[in-house]
């Protein structure tokens, strides 16, 4: 039980470090997926500990949310690439104010 939560925390921290360190937008999206997966792991571990199905249901919701998020994120990535011809997310850091 505790070991599962520790593993989920470590995976989440790795994903967070990836979001902070990497500037390529593909790797940013992948790190967000890592973090979502780690939170789903924490829910399933907790559901298994209590012997209830609720943890797996929240995992299914996280899965649906990840699918919607990644489709919109990849469409944004394509727009960024067509506009700036690069995948560096720092090129889009300025607002047109």
């Amino acid at each position: 039980m505790e070991h599962g939560l520790i593993l989920a925390g470590m995976l989440f921290c790795i994903g967070l470090a990836g979001v902070i360190v990497r500037r390529n937008i593909i790797f940013t999206l992948l790190s967000i997926e890592i973090m979502l997966n780690a939170s789903g792991l924490a829910f399933v571990v907790a559901g298994s500990r209590w012997g209830q199905a609720d943890g797996q249901i929240i995992f299914i919701f996280i899965l649906a949310m990840a699918a919607a998020e990644v489709s919109v994120g990849l469409a944004l990535l394509l727009q960024l690439y067509h506009k700036f011809k690069t995948l560096d997310s720092d090129t889009a850091s300025r607002m047109r104010g």
Partner: peptide, 28 residues
Amino acid sequence: FFILGAPFAAALEVIIYAGAIMVLFVFV
């Protein structure tokens, strides 16, 4: 997941995450 007694979540992890979402990444 399978060890923790959640075989349905394990199947969804392989089918949807590794199957569908990663295929989207590969396409892009």
